[in-house]
């Protein structure tokens, strides 16, 4: 099994891990993936993957509006808003 690059993974997952936690998670992940590697021993030739436990298609409904969006209500839970906009640090100077 190749060495897991936890720093790279944490960047992909947008989780800013630091210091001790980074090495602890490396240990955990290494242990978990060693357990997962048991899967290699199972012969799955010509086995179809199962994505939905009932092999069912998703149920679709008519494309009809059923409710109004209440902007004020939905933004009430935002960490920072101004004039109806979500405020984040400056992205472009």
């Amino acid at each position: 099994m190749p060495k897991i690059d936890v720093e790279h993974l944490s960047r992909l997952a947008q989780i800013g891990l630091e210091g001790e936690e980074l090495s602890e998670l490396y240990e955990n992940l290494d242990q978990i993936m060693r357990m997962v590697d048991q899967m290699r021993e199972i012969d799955t030739t010509e086995v179809e993957p199962l994505a939905h436990p009932l092999d069912a298609n998703q149920q679709l409904r008519s494309d009809v509006q059923t409710e109004e969006i209440d902007r004020e209500l939905n933004q009430a839970m935002a960490p920072l808003i101004e004039d109806g906009f979500y405020i984040v640090p400056r992205v472009v100077d």
């Binding site: 997962v36 799955t44 993957p49 199962l50 994505a51």
Partner: peptide, 13 residues
């Protein structure tokens, strides 16, 4: 990993 796991899921079912 992911595809393999889904195939095993089929075997289990």
């Amino acid at each position: 990993y992911y595809l393999k796991a889904q195939k095993i899921r089929r075997l289990i079912q």
